[in-house]
């Protein structure tokens, strides 16, 4: 294992992480909800009366974030190496997997670990391990 020091951005990572934590704190303390993106979006596919507006508002906020960011600075460069078919496959797996696993990086990885849920620790270890193995196979064993 070699650490990539040239791409290592500890301060941006910590500040960005703290903002994510702040957003989760806000949603929890004011709205009484867990900031789990897959759950917030997924439950909209089975809409329950009176439980729709806050979800839609959160998703709109997330989608509007780059626009707000652009008011202050140009958006950082984005690089998507996967091709169209890989992105379709990836999206499909993420959609199915997060619903069966009841959470993603935000719901299990941030909120679940923050509230010391063993279930979320296990889920986070599972998707992290699967992510590490997938990249290992695609980058180092297939090519």
């Amino acid at each position: 294992m070699t650490i990539d020091w040239t791409h290592f951005t500890p301060f941006a990572a910590l500040i960005g992480g703290a903002l994510i934590g702040l957003a989760a704190a806000m949603l929890l303390l004011w709205s009484g909800r867990i900031a789990g993106i897959s759950g917030i979006v997924g439950a909209l596919l089975r809409p329950v009366h009176g439980d729709i507006l806050w979800r839609v508002a959160f998703v709109i906020g997330l989608i509007a974030a780059p626009t707000l960011y652009r008011f202050f600075a140009p958006l950082p460069e984005v690089q998507i190496n996967a091709n169209f078919l890989n992105v379709v496959l990836a999206g499909g797996l993420v959609g199915i997997g997060t619903r069966y696993g009841a959470g993603c990086t935000s719901g299990h990885g941030v909120c679940g670990i923050s509230r010391l849920s063993l279930r979320s620790v296990i889920a986070t270890l599972s998707f992290m391990a699967a992510g590490f193995v997938t990249v290992l196979v695609l980058r180092h064993l297939v090519h």
Binding site: I37, S38, V41, I80, N81, A82, N86, V87, L89, A90, G91, G92, L93, V94, G95, I96, G97, T98, R99, Y100, G101, A102, G103, C104, T105, S106, H108, I122, A123, T124, S126, F127, M128, A129, A130, G131, F132, V133, T134, V135, L138
Partner: peptide
């Protein structure tokens, strides 16, 4: 479910 999600995450580097 989490493993399926992790595979999808590793494929493109994108989560929800």
């Amino acid at each position: 479910g989490s493993v399926v999600f992790g595979i999808g995450w590793g494929l493109a580097g994108i989560c929800p």
